[in-house]
Design a protein around this nucleic acid. Structure first.
Lengths: 120, 120
DNA sequence: CTATCATTTCCATACTTCTGGAATCATAAA
DNA sequence: TTTATGATTCCAGAAGTATGGAAATGATAG
């Protein structure tokens, strides 16, 4: 991943409103939501939400697919995982056993999560 | 994690310079680096680097420990993993099998990575 | 005490982002 | 065609962020 791409992705998450939008869409995967439903769900004015949705889609964290008069927004979880991988890449210089022991459960199987690639 | 905390953390990563600094420190874990060495390594003016280090430490992603005339900076990987967990929390509404199948290797053991907690 | 060095703070300038009402666009139903 | 509705764009003011040279701070060595 390019550095400027990652910076743009993080910037698109650097506001409370956009975090709310993105996390809501992550929860709604893989169905997504219409802009109006997002606005109603979060209590945001339409123009404000549109501003933030544009930032998220332009960064690539969210996809927009028009459907008649509606536009369905979805979180792009692949990009999200790529971004996490970029952040944690070569963590601890690739030496195992140095990293934090954070407990968690992977998403689908035991080994499908991108993080700290070099620490294995 | 509080929403505003997460937004501040993402904002602290929303610039190419700060991404370079943080990723460099992630690689250097658990040793850290002095400000001067970071500046030399990345080719940044001292005042500019200080500005960005302040943003990272204020957000909590980086810790600073004075040591004689030097100040040693370290990446706070625990906060980083908490942030990843916040982003991926309740992914896909907690339903397994809906998420992307991203290939990766965990950091220390097979189950130490925080991500998509609800999808297990 | 003085010199030196690592780092931060100060400062002004330039630039970018955030917000939400009003206007606009686009699609679909009557 | 007219009307209603979902969604975006436009706009301007307010607020925040980035940059880097110069000055200040603070600690160590001689």
């Amino acid at each position: 991943m390019e550095r400027e791409t990652a910076a743009r992705l993080f910037e698109s998450l650097a506001s409370g409103a956009r975090l709310d939008v993105f996390r809501l869409l992550v929860k709604q995967e893989p169905n997504g939501m219409n802009a109006g439903d997002i606005a109603a769900s979060l209590g945001l004015p339409a123009s404000t939400l549109s501003f933030h949705l544009k930032a998220l889609t332009h960064a690539g964290l969210v996809t927009a697919t028009p459907n008649s008069r509606f536009i369905r927004y979805r979180a792009n979880v692949t990009v999200m995982f790529d971004l996490i991988g970029y952040l944690t890449d070569d963590c601890c210089g690739g030496q195992p056993g140095l990293c934090v022991d954070a407990t968690a459960t992977p998403c689908t199987t035991e080994d499908t999560l991108p993080s700290c690639k070099a620490c294995a």
